[in-house]
Design a protein around this nucleic acid. Sequence first.
DNA 1: GAGTATATCGAAAAATAATTCAGTATCTGA
DNA 2: TCAGATACTGAATTATTTTTCGATATACTC
Lengths: 117, 117
Amino acid sequence: MYKRKIPVDLSCPLRLTISLIDSKWKSCILDELRHKAMRPSELHKALPEATPRVLDLQLKEMVDDGLVTKTIYPELPPRSEYAISPLGMTLIPIIDAMLQWGEEHQELFEKKYGSPD
Amino acid sequence: MYKRKIPVDLSCPLRLTISLIDSKWKSCILDELRHKAMRPSELHKALPEATPRVLDLQLKEMVDDGLVTKTIYPELPPRSEYAISPLGMTLIPIIDAMLQWGEEHQELFEKKYGSPD
DNA sequence: GAGTATATCGAAAAATAATTCAGTATCTGA
DNA sequence: TCAGATACTGAATTATTTTTCGATATACTC
């Protein structure tokens, strides 16, 4: 989340959940991190369409929200790793459901809106 | 969805699903419509924080995406009703999961980011 | 020393989403 | 006839998100 002028109504459970996930990349990041902790550069390799900048910004929000954990290794050149937190793990069933839904309906929407040919 | 300059990558199942749901109100709209078909004015009463304008815009996208059905009754004064479609229904388990997650973690985030007091 | 890779950040621009407000048109009830 | 409700739309403005670009700092390899 980020400090908005118009704050999210946390008392609405649906909007709370949505506000934590709803961005171009957060769900993908969670899906990557669920398998293993990753360094920013690895994450960028796994999600090449996301610029390092967005990944960085979104990871920071996710760390703030407690969904992801960051470990900095005091080495040079610098090394850091992001891992999914226990709280983040509780979102995995939702990610899975979205993943499965997307797989089941991909063809429909590619027909509808044009496949990447 | 709507016609973007930077199109959604439909081949990523996660991003397809997210792109259909991810907005301030769509998940709430689905949650309302799952119970019964509703007129725009009813929907606005149920979600008073959403202006009629956003509801209208988002309903239109959801109709385009096939998640929602619109029926116009040729009466005066005008009457129309929006209902969840069979495709939209298949998203309900995801909505439910998000709803439940939000309920379970509401307190945590209200503590973290300030409750509406 | 030049080039590469590492992680991170700042600032500006561009893209997208949501809000606000005014306006269309028609009927009902006061 | 005037106010209110109905559904809908256009345009401008504001808010939010994402992209793009360039910079920092350090160690490694050639």
